[in-house]
Design a protein around this nucleic acid. Structure first.
Lengths: 357, 357
DNA sequence: CTGTTAGCGCTTTCAG
DNA sequence: CTGAAAGCGCTAACAG
């Protein structure tokens, strides 16, 4: 069996309490005593049993997730993943409270953060907005000793512990790279549909996309970016008009949400023109985008797995709360690339049945 | 606070022992009593604290991983990931023993399985070979009540609990799909380099590749498959000869290991011919294949993450050992697609420093 | 069939 | 500065 605190106490010739004090770096131990204990620990190769620690401490991890109120498929998914994780984590003494705030609203976000901070949670994860007050709010939390993680969308230089999300610059580059190869040297221009250039993710994706295209496919000009505000109606209208106006358009990159509208525009376009003339790359695997991919209307979908992001955020928060280190490799969120050949099986909403047996 | 067994006992008007018996489905409880307890559980919304359970049970999870002795980069990586996981899991009362067997040797594998079974471990993960004795061995383990998981390579119909690995048919289809799009309608034939058609993974990948190519790019013939036995020397020779012989070859799919040799052949080819004429897709991200991708010699790499596979196998084994259900979505191993734009940062071998503080 | 009691490995008062 | 003892939530003998 693994050595326990008793073994340490015995070989060091001290009591349990002293071992505990050394283990937890608490004051009130003479240096010599401390050294004896540390020697014993080293000699026996002692590792703490975290389960027992948590049990004895009665430790619980009250975490809070602050996310924008879901107006698009992705955010809805994110919230639902958070709720799922919450029920599943109950078993592990972790409680998760979900706070929803109006989207793109800095003041609302900051206000929510203040309220949350006064609860003194063991950790906070939030979908950040790239603005000064948000940075300040995060710094404030950290100052209060609360582990902080940004989720999906980052805000640099705020002093938080971790960003659980994809590298959006790389995502954009990847999209550009695929687009360039898919176009295969054909002549024509490329359209980009974004939500808003004010959002950091979108800006970064565009930047990466432009980089790659310039390198791989410099002869295919990128048309002025369309900003659909992640709104289906608006996106549909913009794409429709653009496709009408730029007859030489052979590629479309949709880097934000609101794909539903874009897909409708493509359907319209396909019935008018011959299909297959347009290479399309989009972000986020949703029921709509998935169907379009399966139908051959979209060529590739770049995706971030909301479930992974949530679970990663929880792991990191827990590790930070315990003052432990994280497995960096495990916490990197991948950019998934889906073609219609490697689509994961569609899963009916699994009704998770938390049984108590 | 969450309700505990004491609360249940109190509201049901029984003793702790009885609650425990009901909780664990042990016999010796009258139906009426059982019902009272179950009611109390339902009413209070009781969930077991697994940490306390494990502590009380003194439960440990001795798992065994059986893998082929690493003669290629991938298997080496796999073993090292298993060792990493082993040290990390010590904290969670999980011990992992790594058993290495000669590759492609059914008898050796089966013999190892027998020895392992007599140890009565809490679970076994193995890289399977698709052969009857292996199937029988797995059934044998299951009969002994040992949870079983196959890793990386599956053997269907053996009655094991789970397969922790990618869908190789889908991987092949994906490769074919990318190849078809990358060729972009150009005339020419496509070469396939495999390890051996006797290995299930390779056979499935080829099958999927052929499917996709037939659909997307029917005018590009697939040349007779080269079997390099995952051996660099042999692979180099074969690819070199083939590229010399089939001057119209414009695509190469390397679906097995032994990429080092293939890359050397490509280097040779590139100096003779003009570069960039050949679209190349390979499997497994290793230092060699990574360099070739970065250099533009390989266009895309399909990858399975050995670390994910190992951790997934452990999670599943543990869940099965506890008689719990698994989060299916979390246990699906993705097929990673890497272009040189979304390569994850190269990580120096992190020296994991397990601190006891 | 049911209850009592003593732990699992660690922390935490409260005395010394 | 150090130790003894009680207890976290659950299980496992052993009695009744």
């Amino acid at each position: 069996m693994r050595p326990t605190v008793h073994d340490i106490a015995a070989t060091a010739g001290v009591s349990l309490a002293t071992v505990d004090r050394v283990l937890n770096g608490r004051p009130g131990v003479r240096t010599v005593t401390r050294q004896k204990v540390e020697e014993a620990i080293g000699a026996l190769g002692f590792t703490r049993d975290m389960a027992a620690v948590n049990l004895a401490k009665g430790r619980v991890y009250p975490f809070v997730f602050i996310v924008p109120q879901g107006n698009n498929s992705f955010m809805t998914k994110l919230s639902s993943e958070i709720r799922d994780a919450a029920t599943r984590m109950r078993v592990e003494r972790t409680s998760i409270r979900l706070v929803e705030v109006p989207p793109f609203d800095v003041d609302a976000l900051v206000a929510a953060m203040k309220r949350v901070r006064d609860d003194k949670p063991a950790g906070v994860a939030l979908v950040a907005i790239d603005a000064s007050p948000v940075r300040a709010g995060i710094a404030d939390m950290k100052a209060a000793g609360i582990p902080m993680v940004t989720l999906v969308s980052d805000v640099p230089g705020a002093g938080h512990d971790h960003y659980a999300g994809i590298d959006n610059l790389a995502a954009g580059r990847t999209a550009g790279s695929l687009m360039g190869r898919f176009l295969g040297g054909r002549e024509g221009s490329v359209l980009v549909l974004a939500g808003s250039m004010l959002v950091r993710d979108h800006a970064e994706r565009l930047q990466g996309f432009a980089q790659s295209m310039a390198r791989i496919s410099p002869t295919n000009p990128i048309l002025p970016v369309l900003e659909g505000q992640d709104d289906p109606e608006r996106s549909e209208k913009l794409v429709r008009e653009a496709l009408g106006k730029f007859q030489d358009c052979i590629g479309l990159y949709s880097l934000g949400a609101g794909n539903r509208g874009m897909i409708r525009a493509l359907e319209h376009h396909a019935t008018e023109k011959r299909a297959g003339a347009l290479r399309v790359i989009a972000h986020e695997l949703t029921p709509h985008s998935r169907a379009a991919l399966a139908a051959g209307m979209i060529d590739a979908i770049l995706n971030q797995d909301a479930g992974h992001e949530v679970r990663s955020a929880i792991r990191v928060l827990k590790a930070k709360a315990d003052g432990q280190s994280v497995i960096t490799a495990q916490e990197r969120i991948r950019i998934d690339i889906f073609l219609n050949d490697n689509l994961p099986p569609e899963m009916e909403e699994e009704n998770i049945h938390v049984s108590w047996s």
